[in-house]
Simulated assay, not measured.
Amino acid sequence: MLDIATLTMNPTIDVACSVERLQHSHKMRAGEQSCDPGGGGINVARVFVRLGGNARCYYLSGGATGIALDGLLDLHQLVRTRIPIAGQTRVSTAVLERESGHEYQFVPAGPQVSPQEWQECLDQLAQAKTGFLIASGSLPRGVPDDFYARVCAIARQRGMRFVLDTSGAALRAGMDAGGVFLAKPSIGEFRTLVGADLPDEKAVGDAAMAVVERGGAEYLAVTMGDQGALLASRSGVVKVPGIAVVARSSVGAGDSFLAAMVHALAMGREPEQALRFGIAAGAAAVLTPGTDLCRVADIQRLYEQSAAAT
């Protein structure tokens, strides 16, 4: 079933521009500005729809910036369920310094969310019915650490496969509660989760298998940047190498990976193929400037390149 719902508790308006050189105390004339709806789940939905699937976005939205976010989602023709909040939706900025090729990202913490507001989100999700429910991104202030564990319980009650991509205490609470279909921490997030340096691939694989075996997740994908990704399941550990590309922006690479991997699983592809497809989407995302995420033609080309190399 190529239908998903995504949850974005701390969405953002993603603004991107470029300057020749960053200089303090100077007014710097920026190049063309782009604005896109962002935040983990929203980015996942954008890519999933590009791949031919259907997605409904559940997200919090508040203040004047929330109105702007709603409008951007409509421009992208994304089906949406808005949970209104009193606080202002955050605005994140990515600035490319053309002289050095370095990108700088400025990401605010986001609004304070009341118990009534996050409870309304749970109430809305309790009416959802789709193949996959993907919760991606950080939790805003005021939302309890075990919030995603509560969402997972709702998903399981309604027969939806729950996918989790977050970090810190929210990731730990989700893994401790168990029942997650797919979790996707980065290597840094995973090291924090297990409290170990994990110096080599074997150590990462062993730690990932331990999470799977205790029921934290059915599938655990650990992304490792240009080193590729590792997937642990009851069948064992699979490692797929990265794809060498010239990076233009890192915005949305992890979200692109997750959207493509879930899309492949929903299409019935084997987990290793889905992992490879996700890696191709993550590599495709860094090819595009600013907040543009990945392009389908690039994903397919890089996927075929990766498959031919094995």
Rank of each mutant, 00 (worst) to 15 (best):
D3N: 12
A5K: 08
T6A: 09
S18N: 05
L22V: 15
Q23S: 09
Q23E: 15
E32T: 15
E32C: 07
E32Q: 15
S34C: 00
I42F: 01
N43I: 04
R50H: 03
A55H: 01
Y58L: 13
Y59I: 03
G63N: 01
L69D: 11
L69C: 11
T89M: 09
R90L: 06
V91L: 13
S92Y: 02
E103P: 00
A109Y: 07
P111G: 05
Q112V: 14
S114P: 05
E117C: 05
Q119F: 01
Q119G: 00
L122I: 10
F132Y: 14
I134L: 09
I134E: 05
S136D: 11
L139V: 10
R141G: 11
G142Q: 08
V143R: 00
P144K: 12
P144Y: 08
P144D: 13
V151H: 12
A155F: 03
R156I: 12
R161G: 09
R161C: 02
F162E: 04
A169G: 00
A169D: 13
A170R: 01
L171P: 06
L171Q: 13
M175H: 07
P185S: 04
R191K: 15
G195H: 13
A196C: 13
M209T: 15
L220W: 06
L231T: 07
L231F: 04
I243V: 03
V246C: 12
G252F: 10
S256N: 06
L258W: 14
M261W: 09
A266L: 13
L275N: 04
R276M: 12
T288Y: 05
T288W: 14
T291C: 15
T291H: 01
V296C: 03
A297H: 04
I299Q: 04
I299T: 14
A309M: 07
